[in-house]
Amino acid sequence: MLDRALRLHPQVAVRPEPFGALAYHYGNRRLVFLKHPDMVRVVRSLDEHDTVADTLTACGIDQARWPSFDRALTDLVESEVLVGTDGAP
């Protein structure tokens, strides 16, 4: 996942909340919790970078936390909140 280029699905809206944010997919009607403000920053800046790893670096995420981000982002691809910049799931 770390070497992929990802972005928010065009039908997804992100709403800030005290714990992080809520993301809602208008297409598949799924509601997803972004459970940390760092996760929200990462998700919002994905499309400014060529790979997930670049995004994590740019957002100043400590390398030790990368595996957990990798897992969370994989879940978000699974729920179609994130898609590849080439449109691939």
Binding site: R15, E17, P18, F19, F33
Partner: peptide
């Protein structure tokens, strides 16, 4: 998260 939700949302 359930605790967060109990505390309410914006």
């Amino acid at each position: 998260l359930v605790e967060q939700l109990h505390g309410g949302l914006d």
